[in-house]
Amino acid sequence: MITELNKSEFYKIRHITDKCKNIEVRAVVSGNNPGGVYVDHSTEPTAAFIWIEGQKGFQIVGDPQSISFLTGLEEYMRKHIEPKLQKQNINWVEIGLDPDPWDKTIQNIFQQRNISSDTQHVFTLRGNPQSIEFQDQEVNIQRISCELLKSRRLENHSFLESKILRFWDSTDSFLEQGFGYFVEDNNNVVSLCFSAFVVDKTHAIDIETLEQHKRRNYGAAVARAFVQECLQQGIHPYWDCTPDNTGSIRLAEKVGMSLDFDYQISYYGLS
């Protein structure tokens, strides 16, 4: 029977998720980042369906032949999970998976849905690039600090705080485990790059530049600052993006990252 685990029980699927390349899964299961876990058996799970709060999506891991998932996951989603998503104004179910062998299983589980698939790229840092340095000395790049968050001195403080709280339970949790940089212009955050998910010494990156400030190389500046600290601290940066996001791909490559692996996203709309 499909069961939702309490956070204190997430350890029950560590034997499954420790093998996952996707660090978002391990970040949730380790308790670092918010999310939920649904399993096929409450005592000895063989498969898990994991809610990644920061991504507003799921990952499915473990045994693709789990009878509980094959026969009951679609109904469980419809009765217990999808109503919660709709209350949050989430109109799509997105599920990340290893293409082989979960792709056929997902099609079978959700055969009553109009399910589609796409691919995600993951870039990581290879080697030790020596060319990462600030090119524009006029850009006001700062590290996100406790003092900054407590002072609320930035005019768009709510933007910075909301970005962090999308991925973290609190700003304190973020400051304890992650870090980030931002470009300040006229007392506003106009571009930022920070740790969205953290597992051990791997930090998944979230980066955003406000629309009116794009094409000024601000994204490259904060990404370089972030990756530079990763190099100094022995941290492994992890960059997840869609294949059609050519700007994000160029930026990842610009700071010395290269394609590591792909994974599949299956998705369907909620009526």
Rank of each mutant, 00 (worst) to 15 (best):
Y263A: 07
V139P: 01
I164P: 01
V222S: 04
E9P: 03
T124G: 13
I50Y: 10
F174Q: 00
G127Y: 07
N128L: 02
F167L: 03
E133M: 13
L73K: 03
Q112S: 10
F10E: 10
S266I: 09
D63F: 04
G234P: 05
T43N: 12
I106F: 04
A221E: 13
N91V: 11
L149K: 03
K12I: 04
Q135G: 15
S131Y: 15
K19Y: 14
I205R: 02
Q177Y: 10
S30Q: 03
R14W: 02
L175R: 06
Y38W: 13
N245A: 01
T3W: 10
Q59A: 10
L160E: 09
V39H: 07
S117F: 15
Q65D: 15
W168C: 06
T246D: 13
E253D: 00
K214W: 00
G256D: 02
I141S: 02
E176L: 12
P64Y: 11
V139T: 15
Y268L: 10
I164K: 00
S66Q: 10
L251V: 01
L5A: 08
I16S: 05
Q137V: 02
R126Y: 06
G269Q: 15
V198C: 07
I106L: 14
G31C: 12
P99W: 09
E94V: 06
E229W: 08
V28K: 02
